[in-house]
Design a protein around this nucleic acid. Structure first.
Lengths: 180, 180
DNA sequence: TGTTGCATGTAATTCGTTACATGATTCG
DNA sequence: CGAATCATGTAACGAATTACATGCAACA
């Protein structure tokens, strides 16, 4: 289960409460990589604490517990990250949609592809605008996280954008050919 | 649940048995978009048949049932595909790994990023080689599926490749700066 | 005739989500 | 003092995986 390692990763950057971790998953992390609600996070933190990978560093107001990663936790995270990625289960609805486009009739497919091309072009532009502002943030700081995410997102959107344009061109050519 | 629509999409391209559908998920579809084992597929086909979205078109040897999509099934698939993609839950272990790299110490991060750059470069090359051979397959044929997949994969690997190179350069610069 | 591949299924367990539920603090 | 936010939890349900299980057919 990758939630384990997502939490270890977040706690490796800085100690956090379950509540703060929950909000982390609502940002770029959840947008591009992994989602989790508080109902999975709190029990998982308890399990991690039992395994000695994290510990309660501080108890604050309103019953909040700030967790910190332990040395063993860091070792576990490192091992997982450095190991060759085993066949992870991919489950991406967006990508599924793209694959299924060839099951549509060509006219519908064109409409859809044009929508995708427009949408991804816009998003890539938005991210590029953000990037300019955060140019000098060091990589290894807590903000380095968002930096990696933004760059990744830009390239991701660009990739889908160029793919959609390629598919549109190819489809239009085929429609032309079949019309004559 | 997207398994529903993945099955409808596959059956829209050609009628298939549960066994054949299972194997479809082991190919490019499962690699990039959506995975499913036969233990989810068979019950789901039964449900789809009850809802009238698919029907048993043919019963063959060894108890095999070939399912075909119905008109209602096609309508359902089309509606789902053409509707604006609602906030789909992303859950990509590969991407998660990339995000968590900033939690590693810089030396480990460099090793990992170099591995990723190498790996994605290779894969993109492999896919490009395949593409040359299947250049004239029409889009709307059953093979169009794989075509879309291959093109998507190439752009995907290229994107990650370029991202990894960017991250390596940035990290090396930072290590230089901190060394002096 | 024994192994591989085709073809389908059930049962137990795990995982995650949704809905429900509570209480403290801050801010206007 | 009422609303929003912080902060955590439980219970029920649904979906998906793993393990278990069966049987036919082709082929060497």
């Amino acid at each position: 289960m990758s939630l384990t390692h997502a939490l270890l990763g977040l706690l490796a950057v800085r100690p956090s409460s379950g509540y703060e971790l929950t909000r982390s998953f609502e940002g770029d992390l959840g947008r591009y990589a992994w989602q989790a609600g508080h109902t999975s996070i709190y029990p998982e933190l308890t399990k991690l604490a039992e395994r000695g990978l994290v510990e309660v560093a501080h108890e604050g107001a309103r019953g909040s517990r700030t967790y910190a990663i332990t040395t063993e936790g860091r070792a576990e995270l490192r091992e997982w990250l450095m190991a060759p990625p085993r066949g992870g289960r991919v489950r991406n609805e967006q990508v599924l949609r793209m694959f299924l486009i060839s099951a549509l009739d060509p006219k519908d497919a064109l409409v859809l592809l044009r929508g995708i091309a427009g949408h991804t072009g816009e998003r890539a532009g938005e991210l590029r605008a953000i990037r300019v502002e955060t140019d000098d943030v060091p990589f290894t700081s807590p903000e380095g996280f968002g930096l990696l995410a933004a760059e990744y997102g830009i390239r991701q959107y660009d990739a889908v954008h160029s793919w959609a344009l390629w598919a549109i061109e190819r489809l239009e050519k085929e429609l032309d050919r079949s019309r004559t």
